[in-house]
């Protein structure tokens, strides 16, 4: 059924975008050496802030901007503790997730019923008529296009620019980077906040485009999927896109199987697969020695940087 395949593909792409934004942001932060487990919390706060501003102004672009800003502000807390004060990144990140979930649930109470703006589908003329790819890729909303454009840009920035080199240096060997004049703290702070901006944008994609409206806990674990996708991608933005799309496909297939009454693969298995595949990739990569050089986790990931020994 080629028609059905295009339908599933369209929903798959739609379902991958929040994870893609968040994973790209987390990837940049981790490349600089900062592990931020607060993605879920930053997404929730971004989703709420985006929707709140949207409900006030009915302007989706402004709303998405507010969602980004809120995610960035949350990330600043993490950056202040881990980069500024050298606190444990795991503890601080987890706290951020708990804080974000509670804060958004509490502040969002009055907004549960509000209606806000929606990023409408913007089919690209010409391209939308392509078979299969037309509905799947080119009949989406602006944020979807943005996410797909951002992926190669981030890849290029990380691997082909001076700034990217400084970011990677901070994450691989902060002491040496520092010795050669890289402002490690500033880089790490900036990358963490950048990660928050994208997590916030991913969250507001949920509340302004994917499932419009504010619902408590509406990210439903997508922040954790994003973190898993960073590992799955072996810290390569292009593979993060592949991972996010895989997540999207698994999500869309759940709905498709349900809508057609097919029980080929139970939904619970499909929900589990992104995590299973992440672990499988890690194990495989380790055993086959694939994890060399670029495909490895940044060597200083999770380690606070300090000039004193």
């Amino acid at each position: 059924m080629p028609g059905d395949l295009a339908i599933v593909a369209q929903i798959a792409v739609k379902s991958s975008v929040a994870v893609l934004f968040a994973a790209l942001g987390e990837l940049v932060a981790e490349k600089s050496g900062v592990l931020n487990l607060g993605v879920e919390g930053m997404m929730l706060v971004g989703a709420l802030a985006g929707f709140a501003v949207g409900a006030q102004t009915q302007d989706p672009v402004l709303a998405a901007g507010a969602g980004m800003a809120a995610g960035g502000a949350m990330a600043m807390i993490h950056a202040a503790f881990t980069v500024g004060l050298g606190a444990d990144q795991v503890v601080s990140g987890l706290s951020l997730t708990i804080l974000g979930a509670g804060l958004s649930g509490f502040l969002g109470r009055p907004l549960v019923n509000a209606s806000g703006p929606v990023f409408e589908t913007l089919a690209l003329p010409g391209l939308k008529d392509l078979p299969f790819l037309g509905p799947a890729l080119f009949s989406q909303n602006v944020l979807v296009y943005l996410a797909f454009l951002l992926t190669p840009l981030i890849w290029f920035a990380l691997l082909r620019t001076r700034l990217g080199l400084m970011i990677r240096a901070s994450g691989e060997d902060a002491i040496s980077a520092d010795a050669s004049g890289v402002p490690v703290r500033a880089i790490r702070f900036g990358c963490t906040v950048f990660g928050g901006l994208l997590a916030g944008l991913g969250g507001s994609y949920l509340s302004l485009a994917y499932t419009p409206g504010w619902k408590e806990g509406m990210t439903a674990g997508q922040g954790w999927i994003a973190i898993a996708m960073v590992v799955f991608s072996t810290w390569n933005p292009l593979l993060a896109l592949a991972g996010a799309l895989m997540f999207g496909w698994l999500t869309a297939l759940q709905f498709y199987f349900q809508a057609t009454g097919s029980e080929l693969i139970p939904p619970s298995v499909l929900r589990m697969l992104p995590y299973v595949l992440t672990i499988a990739v890690l194990v495989l990569a380790n055993r086959t020695g694939m994890l060399k050089g670029r495909a490895k986790a940044p060597a200083n990931l999770g380690l606070p940087f300090s000039r004193e020994p």
Binding site: I7, Y210, T211, G213, M218, A220, F255, Y256, Q258, A259
Partner: peptide, 25 residues
């Protein structure tokens, strides 16, 4: 009448996407 299940009394995310899938099909 094709029936799909939320297995929940309310689940905004799945409600939205299931309805979208049904409409698209």
């Amino acid at each position: 009448n094709t029936v799909v299940w939320l297995k929940s009394w309310r689940d905004a995310v799945n409600e939205t996407t299931l309805a979208q899938t049904l409409a698209a099909m």
